[in-house]
Design a protein around this nucleic acid. Structure first.
Lengths: 251, 251
DNA sequence: TTTATTATTTTTGTATACAATATTTTTCTA
DNA sequence: TAGAAAAATATTGTATACAAAAATAATAAA
């Protein structure tokens, strides 16, 4: 079976040869499974099991896991295996901060580079987003919501920044899964729409301001008290926190 | 069982086990070889050969090559192998643009987070840099010159941004190798020193301005006409450019 | 001689085998 | 029964074997 319709253009200079796309196929499937919450943070990703599921040897699974690990979606512990990442509150703040910085630059460039077709495309994207929200298709919404930001990056036209943002968007999904307070964002579609309008109007300052507010709103909807659940347990019982695998940076 | 004593601070949650560090060792050596110009852009990186050199099987070499490829230091062509990256002029511009954006944010944070020890540390770093320049130790200079920017990132205190910048710094080295016009930067040490002084003085705007100027100066020293050598050949002979492996993105 | 075609060799992609390490279960002792 | 030590099991890390593809060499035709 030929691979699922080449959804979108392939990022990098990969030819669409059969072998390589097998790698990509498994990568895409695993990434989707994690971002759509079918694989919860902390889940062990056994090489043997995944190999059986996808009908390949551990060799190719390993490659995929390493790729996901490099994007911080998966965490590899030497001799212990791979696990779905459990971003700490600190990491969450870092990712959102990095996004504010990078997306400010992206918006600035997008305002300059935009064409009418781009604006149309963005509007269509937000329309799909709104639809998925109305029909309650959570999985589609997660994907589309991120796609908006990536589309903006493509308009800006710096592939290096786009690649960074792609990683940040994925990590943001994982962060939202782990730290969303109550309900989902009331309707980020409206915020996206406002951003589009500011860009279309060529109002750079306003577009940047809106994007910053949008990302800040996203962060504000998270439940990021100083420490994560495990550390809280220790603080609650007033014992010195043991050094555990779950703890954040070693330093 | 408690794990091996956490020797020193390792970046990520990697234990210091022998096996993993073998991987890291080879990675570091190969990265250094590329950045220090002992491996020129375009060089084929044969798995068998590298395996023999480092006394390991292709398996571990493959892992390292994939890691380098993800950092854009190496380019993997399916069924053809790995090559030292040959960044295009467009990529070069993108990388420098991304750096201006990210390092602006880093400088802003560094101004706020700085301690006296940090400033001392930075000054020491620049002193080493100057020394390497005076003694003509080019390899050391390449490394130290990048270290300055990474130290700044660490002061800023966002590990996610630091990781991005680390990749960008490596890529910049590769870009300089390929596109430096005449002599090396007259003395970027002075520019580094000025940046430190602005940061120490808490003058955010000036520090940002100096950093931007510094990175722009770096870009201006490159020979980045619209197209690379190969494309030039075609334009010179006024023939339609054939699509070659060397061309940039496929899309 | 030059070009096209075929055969050979080399190299990468993937599966499997074995070794090293972690995890679990069992057994033993207090 | 609870806890510790030891054996058994399972999982990862690495090397090797084999298949598929590309690069090279050799041969044949013009």
């Amino acid at each position: 079976m030929s691979r699922t319709a080449p959804t979108a253009a392939l990022n990098e200079g990969e030819s669409d040869s059969r072998k390589t796309s097998q790698n990509d196929r498994i990568y895409e499937e695993m990434l989707a499974a994690i971002l759509e919450q079918r694989l919860a943070p902390g889940t062990k990703l056994s090489e043997d099991t995944l190999g059986e599921i996808f009908g390949v040897s551990r060799t190719v699974i390993r490659t995929v896991l390493q790729r996901l690990a490099h994007e911080q979606i998966v965490r590899i512990q030497p001799n212990r295996g791979a696990f779905v990442s459990e971003p700490t509150p600190e990491e969450a703040r870092e990712v959102l901060q990095a996004r504010r910085l990078i997306e400010e630059g992206i918006v600035r460039k997008a305002v300059r580079n935009q064409t009418l077709a781009d604006i149309k495309n963005l509007k269509k994207s937000v329309a799909s987003e709104r639809l998925s929200l109305e029909t309650g298709d959570h999985e589609a919404w997660v994907r589309l919501s991120g796609d908006f930001h990536l589309k903006l990056a493509e308009i800006a036209g710096n592939q290096t920044l786009t690649a960074f943002l792609r990683e940040l968007v994925s990590r943001t999904s994982l962060i939202i899964v782990q730290y969303q307070k109550g309900t989902l964002s009331p309707c980020s579609c409206d915020e996206h729409t406002e951003i589009i309008e500011a860009i279309a109007a060529g109002d750079e300052d306003r577009a940047i301001e809106l994007m910053n507010a949008h990302l800040q709103a996203c962060e504000d909807q998270l439940n990021l008290q100083g420490s994560d659940a495990k550390a809280d347990l220790y603080s609650i019982f007033a014992k010195p926190a043991k050094l555990e695998e779950k703890s954040g940076s070693v330093i």
